[in-house]
């Protein structure tokens, strides 16, 4: 019996590996299935979080929706698969998801040794600290000896060790699997400090019973460029994800939004806009998509600015400033290659 069970388990692994390996053309697989399988977080307001009706919303979710709009012409054809930080890369490697859009930091190790490709950056972040106001701490340099809640399997864990070591400070790492657990540990008082990417800290602060009792310290201790990730070795799909993101950023730069894209399609003489909408230029041929893929993204999901304001900006409970996530010509880092 034991032998049969182990043989069955091993063959399941082997078959799993070989089918995933055969699914080289992610684009064809997605078209056949009729939906995009998108790995998201287990619940992070502003990035990927289900609303009260169970619909997923957020910056990362809108990347998935843009891909579905470009590939299938319908932004709603996405199947969301919630993953913890620990599960995410294995899920992508094994072919369980088509794209990972889950506030994932782009690092050299991840890009080069995991068989993955980062398709761009949809949010520039940095690691910070959330502390309870009654501790009276004003700077991260005062945190010597603190107990720190962290989510396991993140770059945060590594940056934290580096930062405390560099400043000759001690800390007790309290490691949990999900960000919800870290918040609960922080609220219960298991730790003095909650550390994560700053955008997450603002999002997690909302989840506290009394958000005004906690504050985010001013120090940003790392660079955290977050973006969608795909499997290595499928350049076509890599290009599709990359250019879906670029289309959103370019649309904002050109002043094209979900509200005016129809009228612009009729009336605009701007060749850049015409190329993005798919009336001229490279259209969808090189990507293997319909010619109006860019139009569908802008129409159904919106440009990057709309996505930002709706999910994390002024129009959301998070109220994060554009800051470094503004367009390059408005003082930020966002710069998409031209579509021509």
């Amino acid at each position: 019996m034991k032998k049969i069970a182990s043989v069955a388990a091993l063959s399941a692994i082997a078959v799993g590996m070989s089918t995933a390996a055969q699914a080289e053309g992610t684009l064809d697989a997605v078209k056949d299935k009729g939906f995009v399988q998108c790995g998201v977080s287990t619940g992070l307001p502003g990035f990927s979080n289900p609303d009260e009706k169970g619909n997923w919303q957020g910056m990362d979710v809108d990347v998935c929706r843009a891909i579905a709009a470009a590939v299938l012409g319908d932004a709603s054809k996405v199947k969301y698969i919630p993953l913890t930080a620990k599960e995410r890369f294995t899920a992508l490697q094994s072919g369980e998801i088509d794209v990972l859009s889950r506030n994932t930091t782009w690092t050299q190790t991840r890009d080069t040794t995991l068989g993955l490709n980062f398709a761009g950056v949809n949010y520039y972040d940095g690691q910070g600290f959330l502390v309870s106001k009654n501790l009276g701490v004003k700077s991260a340099k005062e945190l010597d000896g603190a107990a720190v809640c962290i989510q396991s399997g993140t770059t945060t864990e590594l940056n934290l060790s580096d930062y405390f070591k560099l400043n000759n400070m001690q800390f007790d790492p309290i490691v949990f699997d999900t960000s919800d657990q870290t918040v609960k540990g922080f609220e219960a008082g298991r730790c003095d400090v909650l550390t994560s990417d700053q955008s997450q800290l603002y999002a997690l602060r909302i989840k506290l019973a009394d958000p005004s009792s906690a504050m985010v310290l001013p120090e940003v201790i790392s660079k955290e460029p977050l973006g969608p990730v795909v499997r290595q070795g499928d350049d076509q799909w890599f290009n599709i994800v990359k250019w879906s993101l670029n289309a959103m950023i370019n649309a904002e730069e050109l002043g094209l939004s979900s509200a005016n894209v129809d009228s612009m399609k009729e009336s605009s003489d701007n060749p850049s806009i015409k190329r993005l909408i798919g009336l001229e230029g490279p259209k969808g041929e090189g990507l293997g998509l319909a010619d109006d893929w860019g139009y569908q993204i802008v129409k159904q999901v919106g440009n990057y600015g709309e996505v930002f304001e709706r999910n994390v900006g002024a129009g959301s409970p998070l109220g994060i400033e554009r800051g470094i996530n503004a367009l390059w010509n408005q003082g930020g880092f966002l710069y998409a290659p031209p579509m021509r």
Binding site: A14, S18, A21, T112, G115, L160, D162, R231
Partner: peptide, 29 residues
């Protein structure tokens, strides 16, 4: 077959294999 298949697939996808990682610095506490 199973082991060879796994190794080939890992190699094709550029996923690093082997036990060399055990001697790298951990970087977390």
């Amino acid at each position: 077959y199973v082991i060879n298949n796994a190794l080939t697939n890992l190699d094709n996808r550029g996923i690093t294999t082997g036990f060399g990682f055990l001697s790298q610095a951990a970087g977390f506490d």
